[in-house]
Simulated assay, not measured.
Amino acid sequence: MSSEAKAVVEVTAKDLHGEGVVFCPNPKMTLWSGHPRVFIDVATTGEGKCPYCGTVYRLKAGEKLHAH
């Protein structure tokens, strides 16, 4: 197993789509290193991890999610 630290991306409530998900790869990632787009639930626990690249998406401290 690699000991290399994976990227952590802090997201705000405005970054979330639909029911509180983000997608990976995100728009800031380079196209050549892309993988199939996956939707990652961040709203449930405050963070989620991409199963392809290991990037962790974490809700920024103090962010409040709005209920519908």
Results as ranks from 00 to 15, higher is better:
18 G>Q: 08
65 L>E: 00
22 V>I: 13
15 D>H: 06
66 H>G: 05
32 W>K: 09
4 E>T: 15
21 V>D: 01
35 H>I: 13
17 H>W: 08
3 S>Y: 07
54 G>I: 02
66 H>K: 11
28 K>A: 14
33 S>F: 10
56 V>D: 00
61 A>R: 04
7 A>L: 12
32 W>R: 12
55 T>D: 01
39 F>S: 13
21 V>M: 10
41 D>P: 08
55 T>G: 02
11 V>H: 03
58 R>D: 00
49 K>T: 12
3 S>I: 11
20 G>P: 06
8 V>H: 00
50 C>A: 05
13 A>G: 10
35 H>N: 04
28 K>G: 11
2 S>I: 04
58 R>V: 06
61 A>I: 05
34 G>I: 10
45 T>D: 08
2 S>E: 10
25 P>Q: 08
62 G>S: 07
65 L>Y: 02
19 E>Y: 13
4 E>D: 15
26 N>T: 14
61 A>D: 06
3 S>V: 14
39 F>A: 14
16 L>E: 00
50 C>E: 00
38 V>W: 03
8 V>T: 12
24 C>H: 08
7 A>V: 15
4 E>S: 15
28 K>S: 14
10 E>S: 13
18 G>T: 07
65 L>M: 02
31 L>S: 11
55 T>Y: 03
14 K>A: 15
37 R>S: 11
36 P>W: 06
44 T>H: 05
57 Y>T: 01
54 G>K: 05
62 G>F: 03
64 K>P: 00
65 L>D: 00
15 D>L: 08
4 E>H: 07
21 V>W: 08
59 L>N: 02
7 A>N: 13
13 A>I: 12
9 V>W: 00
32 W>M: 09
62 G>Y: 01
25 P>W: 08
15 D>K: 04
45 T>N: 09
65 L>R: 01
33 S>L: 10
37 R>V: 15
42 V>D: 01
20 G>K: 07
3 S>P: 04
11 V>D: 00
8 V>E: 03
64 K>E: 06
41 D>F: 07
15 D>G: 07
31 L>I: 13
54 G>Y: 04
19 E>V: 14
38 V>Q: 06
34 G>L: 04
40 I>N: 04
3 S>G: 14
67 A>M: 05
12 T>L: 11
10 E>G: 04
9 V>G: 03
32 W>Y: 09
64 K>R: 11
11 V>Y: 03
33 S>E: 14
21 V>N: 02
15 D>M: 12
53 C>W: 02
64 K>M: 07
42 V>Y: 01
55 T>L: 07
23 F>W: 06
60 K>L: 07
65 L>I: 05
48 G>W: 00
13 A>T: 13
51 P>E: 12
7 A>H: 11
23 F>H: 06
7 A>Y: 02
34 G>A: 15
23 F>Q: 11
47 E>Y: 10
66 H>Y: 05
15 D>R: 05
34 G>M: 09
41 D>S: 12
24 C>E: 00
67 A>Q: 07
15 D>E: 04
40 I>C: 01
39 F>E: 10
28 K>H: 02
32 W>V: 14
37 R>L: 05
30 T>A: 15
26 N>R: 08
21 V>E: 10
50 C>V: 09
